[in-house]
């Protein structure tokens, strides 16, 4: 067994897929692992995968053209998941869809083949990541700093920043904002009328992020008051509230 160790990022995993395939050892005899999240195995040969944007782009392109845009989306989202064995599952699915003996029709439908264990796992991971990203469409809360920047802090399980960047920059094209994911130590940054980007392994200035703009506290009070007065007492149902709005999100939220 030859184990390819790759970096925990979409590019890292896709490069791993490229190298493992390119090694011509045979799909049964190779496996992909994440460098940070693996246990060493006996009787295995290890190879380091150097993340290479070009190789990753090639894999992405062929997945798109052979397996379709839907499949690419599912695989991409799964690659952002926190699941430690995701790399190998993704590799198996791609092998499944791009083998020489698979017809175009089959390749396009591989991603719906929930009967296969690997496809099903990738599908589940993707759904989880997608759902968490949607949670952050809902629960990201900005506060205005005295520099005029909108700042938000979240603690995500999976790497959701790449999935929420488009939404927020489309929504606030004229704002300077920053979303800091303290679980992964990544920052999503958007400048006024400029494209968004992600800085990995960067944390914001501890002092600057607590210096609020003049009217910020007033707005927060207004919002908290609104959340209180909009509730109908006769229907109070904290259990239902918790179901839709789990406690773990509230720590980082204004009204939480």
């Amino acid at each position: 067994m030859v184990i390819f160790q790759c970096e925990d990022s979409v590019d890292g995993i896709f490069t791993g897929v490229y190298d493992a395939w390119d090694s011509r050892i045979g799909h049964e005899a190779v496996a992909l692992r994440l460098r940070e999240k693996m246990d060493l195995e006996l009787f295995a040969e290890y190879r380091e995968v150097e993340t290479d944007a070009q190789k990753a782009a090639k894999v992405a392109r062929s997945v798109r053209s052979k397996m379709g845009q839907d499949a690419y989306r599912v695989i991409y989202q799964a690659a952002l998941s926190a699941y430690p064995e995701k790399a190998d599952c993704i590799y198996r699915v791609i092998v499944h869809g791009m083998s020489a003996n698979v017809t175009k029709y089959e390749a396009q439908n591989v991603i719906w083949n929930l009967q296969s264990r690997d496809v099903c796992r990738v599908f589940e991971l993707s759904r989880k990541v997608g759902n968490e990203a949607h949670r952050y469409f809902q629960f990201v809360r900005f506060r205005e700093l005295d520099s005029g920047v909108l700042f938000s802090e979240i603690q995500a399980e999976n790497q959701v920043l790449p999935l929420i960047g488009e939404h927020f920059s489309d929504r606030f094209p004229n704002e300077n904002f920053m979303i800091y994911d303290n679980g992964h130590n990544d920052c999503l940054i958007h400048g006024k009328q400029r494209p968004w980007f992600i800085l990995r392994d960067t944390s914001p200035d501890e002092v600057a992020k607590d210096q609020l703009a003049v009217r910020e506290e007033e707005m927060q009070e207004l919002w908290k008051g609104f959340c209180r007065s909009i509730s109908v007492e006769a229907r109070e149902n904290r259990g239902l509230q918790r179901q839709f709005w789990p406690l773990k999100f509230r720590r980082w939220m204004t009204e939480g």
């Binding site: 809902q138 489309d170 704002e175 909009i230 229907r235 709005w245």
Partner: peptide
């Protein structure tokens, strides 16, 4: 609806609930 790039805001067909009040209804 995508933002026009000039103002502020966009819309998502599925809708987004931003918070939940004590009666469990969405805000």
């Amino acid at each position: 609806r995508k933002g026009s790039g000039k103002g502020m805001g966009n819309c998502t067909a599925a809708g987004i609930c931003h918070s939940f009040s004590a009666d469990g209804r969405c805000i």
